[in-house]
Write a protein that binds this DNA or RNA. Structure first.
Lengths: 212, 212, 212, 212
DNA sequence: GATGAATGAGCCTTCATTCAT
DNA sequence: GATGAATGAAGGCTCATTCAT
């Protein structure tokens, strides 16, 4: 992210080494972040997992704050990339495509990056600084979903207040890791599919509406 | 030991004072808890807001842990009472009654007790101890909603996997205060109504199901 | 100690009441002192055992320090009284009389006031203030023993450096409660007799002296 | 992890530095421990004497508890080593050899390690945990003395109940630093010799026993 | 005389951060 | 580039002491 951005000659061996180390650190930090939460992540634990000293982390990140922020960015990038792949790979009705996105997001959030949900939930207890950054990062993610939703609305397939439904979708989707915690992997897949199906209803008009 | 043994009508002036103070502390603690989160809540800050010293809190609660637990219990009790009132006061279709409950919950969560949402969201990074307690406290709350949902399912009005829909409902509902943060009160009411309507869809069969 | 010292008319009922309370407090404090040691004694625990509040203790003693000092004085008075009774009641050789005193002291120290030993040991870790007081209090106690010892020396029955033997005697005697801790009462009596006999040797010339 | 794995001859400069610091800390802690006692020893005071911050101590010891334990172990090791040297170096009657041991112990306790006495006195008010440890550590020390004593008993030179005499010996011996506190060095040597001689009497049969 | 309330000072512990080597 | 050392600030908790009622 730093060295690659340079426009100069081929990145020196030392620069590549540094980038690899940065990636390692980010990965370890993301792990700790997932397991212990924002407030539970200590530099000591991150360093321990890398067989490094806490002090050494400061060669790569000027502060804990920057490390966490970089983690968020990495997670967001990963998520958005995967989602964009998903979005690009499918065709069909808006509902079908939205369903795929939801399932992809659940997959990530449940199986690989339970901490990722925090990024999208804007946790109330994070310092304002991080909330701002994560809000910014979320916009892109949001847009992937919203473009499908808007399409569905335009085509008449969906019938909703976009903001309202999107918020409900996000709230439910990102709470899933809490719900699933500790379940067996098999169950998780079944459940995730059911959850996704149910969430689609937020966008579809109900058969008999008592509150349309 | 003496006052508490009395049959009730005369809780000595001192006891009333103490109760009021306990309530004040719980309120302040709940505020801090909701603003800073579990790990961010320090006894110093709670005490500061009450013009007290940290040490003074220990006259009312034997430990930080007990204080937090008492907050959870108080909030849960408040919420369950209000919901039960709501549930008892309405008649109509299951959808109508569920709608009322959702609106009641949103009302509380958005207007009066934004802290309350935390109780139902079980943040991933709280110590297991508290997650257990809050899970236990939530059961009662959950049951009020579920009884209406089950009724709707039995009557054929609703058509869902109860667990799946309930979880989605909770996730979305309790994320609302995050979403609404900083909005004007007028908007909030409108929004809440729309959110409630949209959430009802989770339980109603969609007009045309494009997902098997 | 305060009221009784007054030269005025019969101590009013209120004064007697106060004295009784002071005695109760001293007794409770001495108990805690024995069980928890000087540093482990807290006003809270003393008050608890009396069904009082910590604050109430301050009606009778101006500070923790004064309470502890009063305890020491009480213990010393008790010990000295008992020893003087013993000393007055016996006749016989110096060795016989010293043996009685030792047994009396062991009896007190082991059975009734394990904390009393601290008074005579001048614990290294007590604040200087208390060490001075306890040293003063010990003089009287010491003198009871020494008068018998000096007599034995004068009569030729004993053959020792008074200071040296006295110190060794005190050190050994007051360490007994540590040694006996947790033993059964029966054993304690047997042991105490043996200990006393052995300690007498400090004063008697050895049969074959390789170091006289 | 790296340096410790080496076979010994080259404990990197940094390791040596650390060891020296650990030794310094242990020394300072032992001092404070002996002056203020277990409960009176604060990490702040230990740190102060080393021109360190309390927090820095945690680089070397994970907790106050471990620091105290390490002190006990260090003192015990030192004492036992010295005594074993003494025991190995002397010949002669049991009384002569026991006399040497007593003098050696007094020498250490009075001149170099006044803290050491605490290790052997097992103060009543230390938490059970430490009393257990120090009791265990004392066993070895005890055994050095007892082997000589048992030999003297076997050969008929001594005539005592081993346990009783040993306890009296320990009580008297370890109380010496309290007694000597503040005396001039010259006097101390004379005194110590007299104390040792007197203590030997505990093991020798008295010339005329007036106590059955 | 008794007590609940409040507090300041002190303790142990954790942690992000700095710096010399 | 890496690390051990050191630290300041903060957090939870205890306790002797004061004071108004």
């Amino acid at each position: 992210m730093t060295a690659e951005a340079r426009s100069g000659p081929a990145p020196s061996r030392v620069a590549r080494r540094r980038d690899r180390k940065v990636a390692d650190i980010l990965s370890a930090a993301a792990d700790v972040l997932s397991e212990r939460g924002f407030h539970g992540m200590s530099l000591d634990e991150v360093a321990d997992r890398l067989d490094l000293t806490k002090a050494s982390l400061y060669h790569y990140f000027p502060s804990r704050e920057e490390l966490v922020s970089a983690c968020l960015e990495t997670l967001a990038t990963t998520a958005n990339e995967r989602l964009r792949q998903t979005a690009g790979a499918v065709s069909g009705t808006a509902a079908e495509r939205l369903g795929m996105l939801i399932r992809a997001q659940l997959d990530m959030v449940v199986r690989e990056y339970p901490q990722m949900a925090r990024l999208f939930l804007q946790p109330l207890d994070w310092p304002e600084l991080y909330r701002q950054r994560s809000r910014a990062l979320r916009v892109e993610h949001d847009e992937i979903f919203r473009s499908v939703v808007r399409e569905g609305i335009r085509s008449g397939e969906f019938n909703v207040d976009e903001d309202v439904a999107m918020h409900n979708l996000y709230g439910a989707m990102n709470n899933v890791p809490v719900w699933f915690r500790g379940r067996r992997k098999k169950d998780v897949d079944d459940m995730a599919a059911k959850v996704a199906d149910n969430l689609l209803r937020l966008f579809l008009p109900p058969a008999s509406s008592s509150s349309a």
